[in-house]
Design a protein around this nucleic acid. Sequence first.
RNA 1: GGCGAGGUAGCCAAGUGGUAAGGCCGGGCUCUGCAAAAGCUCUAUCGCGGGUUCGAUUCCCGCCCUCGCCUCCA
Length: 483
Amino acid sequence: MSLSLYDTFSREVRSLQPLDGETLRFYCCGPTVYGPAHIGNFRTFVMQDVFRRVVEASGSATRHVRNITDVDDKTIRQSQEENRALSEFTSEWTARFHKDCDALGILHPHVEPSAVEHLPEQIDLISQLIGKGHAYRTDDGSVYFDVNSFPAYGKLSRLAEREITTGEIDREQSDEYDRASAADFALWKAARPEDGPNHWQSPWGQGRPGWHIECSAMAMKHLGESFDLHSGGVDLVFPHHENEIAQSEAATGKTFAHHWLHIAHLTVEGRKMSKSLGNLYTLEDLAERGHTPMELRYVLISGSYRQPLNFTFDSLAAAKKSLTRLGNWQHRLGGDTEIHSPGKGDFGPFAPVLEALLNDLNTPEAIGRLHSIGRKVMAMANAEELSPAETKAASEGLSLVLRCLGLVLPNPENAPATNIDEPPASVNKLACERLEARQNRNWEAADQLRDQILEAGWTVLDNPDGFSLEPLETKTEITDHQS
RNA sequence: GGCGAGGUAGCCAAGUGGUAAGGCCGGGCUCUGCAAAAGCUCUAUCGCGGGUUCGAUUCCCGCCCUCGCCUCCA
């Protein structure tokens, strides 16, 4: 069974099968590494990860390329401001990105090309475009793509149906880069003083590549001139992906990507994320509030990728509870807890979950089915109504589902892992006394001791082996502002 | 203004031409000395007004509201 997936280009849900019959080749626009990625960025990367996992579960191999944008306006400006070498600056943020991705259980792409390491490929592509009359050099040594030379321009974003705001070019841009038509976009940008040492030799003089060209060059290098699917956030539909199509197809005459996957944006508490609103959260910000990356992952896949998703701290708390519950199930059924890709397998009683995922990556439906099927299966398991074979099937099915979703669940046996603080000896002593009182069935004394422990700022929880102590929730509410 | 998406229970969020998945919260119950945890269970007629239909939340029209993109933001 293959995946049906909405295609931005044709605007319909289409069955997705590898062009070469074997390996589904796809390209994801990666991060610009000039700072920490925020949870909105991660929605895209997490959904792309689920996409890959589902394709692999459906039986296809994949070849996943995701770039690192390490040479552009933002990386150059920021590194210059910090007085640091571009490569040092970007490799630091690249490392941070990798760390975050790992924490979120995002599989590593098979190839992760860096823009600055693919300058020859980009220059070559630009040369081809000039040669074929699709691009021109300006007096300052920049090169632009001539949009008028490519009649199909705008077909992805249906630009023809829009009112193009020509003439409304940013003043600063038009002063510095002298393009012929407002719609034309830079393939190569001539060096500017403020770029510092960040310019490279080209047939058109010192400069650096434009933003869009890197993806065309790297995608074609690592996936071929024509490949299965291209993906990114919705904001990339125009102009980034539109421009990629124009550059690539003008150069090769072939269809660039056969399917376009775009992930809708994340809003935060009902509002667009922005620096001025102070709601651009990073994984670090969430960690400071006591939330784990997996909780975020769960939230990010709890809505349809085609719809804007509203992130709230309540949903993060809900995710924690759900994960705990799923973790209990997995523990009781005894499945494995690896993060790796699912591959093809028998989903057993959880087959309807895979079905939901194959239906345009319907992750909310899948999660709903996971819960309702899981509840039934666990009820039977608890009533000891499952044969060993059925238990095994359920266990394997659950593991496969979790791997499709990329969820790594908390193990109830190491449950209080969040509690790093050791209780002071005095509190511990009170708790021991309370245990003794309980063993003597002296409930009054036990309750009194619990009150004392509470006053000391700790909660005592009874369990079969004795007790555990947890610090009282210091409710740092969400009222504090981001700086 | 152009293009696009959407308004479903306190919150998040699916879905269907035949009277609405799931999660969280809340209520009730079971278990437990009490708690906690866990388990069970209850809770919506789908923005407003028309229309098509035997029947619409699901299709069409109008209105109100929200949101995204419109040149380098995932």
